[in-house]
Amino acid sequence: MSLPGSNVGNLRNVRTSLSLLGLLYASVLLAGLLAPYDPTEQNRDMPFAPPSRLHFAEPRGTFRLRPFVYRVVSKPGSFGEYAEERGTTYPMRFLVRGAPYRIAGILSCTRHLFGFDEPAKVFLFGSDEYGRDVFSRLLYGGQISLVAGLLAASLALGLGTILGGLAGFYGGWADEICMRVAELFLALPWLYLLLAVRATLPLHIDPVQAFLFLVVVIGMVGWARPARLIRGIVLSGKLREHVLAARAFGASDSYLLRRHVLPQAAGVVFAQLAVLIPQYILAEVTLSFFGLGVGEPVPSWGNMLAAAQRYDVLTSYWWMFLPGIALSPVFLLYYTLANALHQQTARLTS
């Protein structure tokens, strides 16, 4: 354990959180492979089935290395109560054929990492009101929620960098207008602004549209803060001596911006990215939660969590909280990353 805030500790924090985040994103992008079922596949006879138990020991006591399950059926005459049929065992099989899916929308495939023979169903994280597998939906939902945050933050920072960079570099009336508009955007509480912009679209839009729209809206609403930050850096950065020297050698404006001025802001940009992504993930989740984002049947962590508003779900089926609980580790990773990057930038510039 090195000293908190020391260089080594910082770099290690950056590396650890980055690699864990990479793993997370890889697993949601490979959702089709990792998830045993299609996220929209319904089992109407199994609503709110509790998480399945993987067994290793048979009733007679023999231990098996390969986990197996029993078929779970609802008790006759009851709702939401299930029992295992202890007759036949269904061993876990690897790389089985199942529902077709596409990886990243291109590569079409039918193999799943694991699966069980029909009629056994395995809900690692339980099932929802239509008997859909929460585990599969969580993975697919991550594709929407996590990726939307990432794209929206990149868009906001891209816009912010361009506008803030130009405003700071050229100054004058462009700068004035840019900063006044930024002030207007910052004067609005952010969620209210987001909802106001969301109101421009019809209530029910198809999921792909909704996803793209969310990314664009969140990105467009968020450009103001990074733009102000970048403008500040460019404002002082363009007067640094190596920049002045390059200008004296006859470098063009665009070359100066690209090669000498904007790179000075790189540290801040990356730190901002780590700050903004979790915010925007949460924005997508919140909008979808209120039914204004990505809608059913496509899963997003927000619209999955919306089910937990129901009284009976809230009190009886804890696994329906999982999409919300899953946010915390993601936020923690980004938070660690942002902290470490921030300290690293502070160290380098001081």
Binding site: L282, V285, T286, F289, L305, A308, Q309, Y311, L314, T315, F321, G324, I325, L327, S328, P329, F331, L332, Y335
Partner: peptide, 16 residues
């Protein structure tokens, strides 16, 4: 790192 949605739902659960 706990988002407000989860916090709110958690408190509701406690209340219920």
């Amino acid at each position: 790192v706990v988002p407000e949605l989860v916090l709110g739902l958690g408190l509701l659960l406690v209340a219920v």
